[in-house]
Design a protein around this nucleic acid. Structure first.
Lengths: 166, 166
DNA sequence: ATCGATAATGTAATGTTGTAACCTTGCACA
DNA sequence: TGTGCAAGGTTACAACATTACATTATCGAT
């Protein structure tokens, strides 16, 4: 199962590591399990939002997602409903917010709680996700040395991805 | 002069360092010089926007700034005028955008081009700015190793400042 | 000094992102 | 059966950002 696998990776090494790539179905299932474990419900609506989110290949705005969910459900779903669910997902580590894009991505390894690093291409808009616990620990450390209690590091690198750079 | 002083600090060491604190007048003067050096005009409007920006003690939204500028000029100044000038300032390193707050802060050392790290307090809203070239270089390096050409690292730590934590 | 080119700012409208308040539905369980 | 609560719907609005086009200011060339 995804979460266990990730935990192993997380505990095993403090350096950069990778997560297996998952198809949407497995990812969705992992998300469902994760949410239920937290005592939350896995409803049709939430499932649809998660699926919609997971099928975008770039960070998607809440409005993008609302549109996709509306399409899938065959009826208009308002943005604020989507926001509620996205907030829930972010809180449960099923999704992440990309601050510099006002957009969201599915967490490829639900339940893992790394601080994460996003590389966002200004050309094609795609975001890739890196885990580097040593580096994020350093960011927290620098904050801490400044007398600041870090709750949530936001590390997002804007630039050009390999594809677009070529 | 500020810029020269900063350049020395920047070239001199690749580690954490600090910049002298400046009063608004000196800061404004440094900003003016910096902008003129880039072949841009230093107009009344721009001066007012810069002053307004510099007097906020937390990151200010474009609308906050528009309001303050309106007050100072005694007539309504529209948000888009402010956005234009803020974009110019950001491009000239006179100001920075805080992505996770949709807001702007004056650059305390105009003309310096560090990647910067912000610590933003979720309680009081204040942002403090840290330069740590070693750490930001590492962030760029991690991106680079992933085949990504880093243009602009966004490193913002959300949490509690020393004041609020007490 | 004035003319013309260009840069800066104004005006109005609109698009996008995010929240708040309140209502309805459906389900669990006394 | 009722009643309590979580999820989601509806409506309205607040906050952030951009676009297109008109007007005014600035500056260099003459």
């Amino acid at each position: 199962m995804l979460a266990a696998r990730c935990r192993r990776a997380y505990l095993g090494a403090m350096g950069t590591h990778h997560h297996p790539i998952n198809d949407t179905a497995a990812l969705k299932d992992a998300a469902r399990t994760q949410l239920i474990d937290r005592g939350e419900q896995w409803t049709e609506m939430r499932a649809t939002v998660f699926e919609a989110l997971a099928t975008f290949d770039s960070p998607a705005s809440a409005y993008d997602i609302a549109e996709e969910v509306s399409r899938r459900r065959g009826k208009r779903v308002a943005a604020n409903s989507v926001y509620r669910i996205l907030d829930l997902f972010v809180g449960a580590n099923l999704a992440r917010r990309v601050e510099s894009a006002n957009a969201y991505v599915a967490n490829e390894h639900p339940g893992c709680l790394h601080d994460c690093i996003f590389l966002i291409c200004d050309q094609c808009g795609k975001a890739t996700h890196i885990d580097d616990d040593r580096l994020t620990a350093e960011v927290r450390d620098v904050a801490s040395k400044a007398g600041f209690k870090a709750a949530r590091p936001v590390i997002e690198v804007r630039g050009r991805c390999g594809e677009c750079e070529r």
